[in-house]
């Protein structure tokens, strides 16, 4: 079963003269343990596609399913649950709750999802590999931007989702850091078996990609 399948998705915003057709018959699917890169200039529809893949936005037409479960015939609440179970979002703006320690960011997940989360040992391992083990009792405002991003990545991994969706994860990073984050996403795929989808216009990430798509004016094509 494919972790994420997107079939003939169209997205239209607005009506009349304000009508914009943002996505045109977009289809793609992911395999476990791979990194898919969706490249494209700003305004080409990448974020819209990511919102649809994560079930935040219902497409005008087309089908999206996660772990074999289509979003379409689910209520809003059930889509929340699907997202909680199968999707890990790594967003450009991390927005970690400032009044929760790093540890409590994970505890919060336990409050709404009691099973299937990483065990304490697994979490410790993830934190170790992200190099943030000794930050667990700190509050986000006490961390650097890079540390916050790594906490956000750990937070996305904690519910043990099959799919990781990342929106412009390197947008705010300089040269050397980009490589670190790229390697990190690679290891999520290789070591943790996730299907990683990265949406970006940063060509420095192409090294780690198993599949590269190009998004242009709402049309998605596979490059290699």
């Amino acid at each position: 079963m494919k972790p994420l399948v997107i079939e003939k998705v169209n997205q239209v915003f607005g009506t009349g003269t304000a009508r914009v057709h943002v996505l045109h018959d977009v289809s793609f699917e992911t395999e476990p343990g791979t990194v898919s890169l969706i490249m494209g200039p700003s305004g080409s529809g990448k974020s819209t596609l990511l919102s649809i893949a994560g079930g935040l936005l219902t497409p005008t037409s087309g089908m999206v399913s996660v772990a074999g479960e289509p979003y379409s015939d689910r209520t809003k609440k059930q889509r929340d649950k699907l997202r909680l179970d199968y999707i890990g979002f790594v967003l450009q703006a991390y927005h970690l709750l400032p009044y929760l320690t790093v540890q409590d960011q994970f505890t919060l997940v336990d409050k709404v999802k009691s099973t299937g989360n990483l065990s304490a040992d697994e979490l410790a391992e993830v934190l170790e590999s992200l190099g943030i083990s000794d930050l667990v009792h700190k509050y986000p405002p006490e961390l650097s931007g890079g540390q916050q991003q790594r906490v956000a990545i750990a937070r996305a991994l904690y519910p043990n989702p099959a799919v990781i969706l990342a929106d412009e994860p390197t947008a705010a990073l300089d040269g050397p850091r980009v490589q670190v984050v790229a390697d990190l996403f690679k290891s999520l795929a290789v070591e943790h078996g996730k299907s990683v989808v990265i949406v970006t216009h940063d060509s420095r990430l192409t090294d780690v990609a198993d599949v590269i798509y190009e998004m242009k004016d709402g049309y998605l094509t596979q490059k290699e």
Partner: peptide, 15 residues
Amino acid sequence: PNYAVLRAQGIPSKM
């Protein structure tokens, strides 16, 4: 904005 991220991550509005 924090809540929007939590919602994106699937934390129910109820919470």
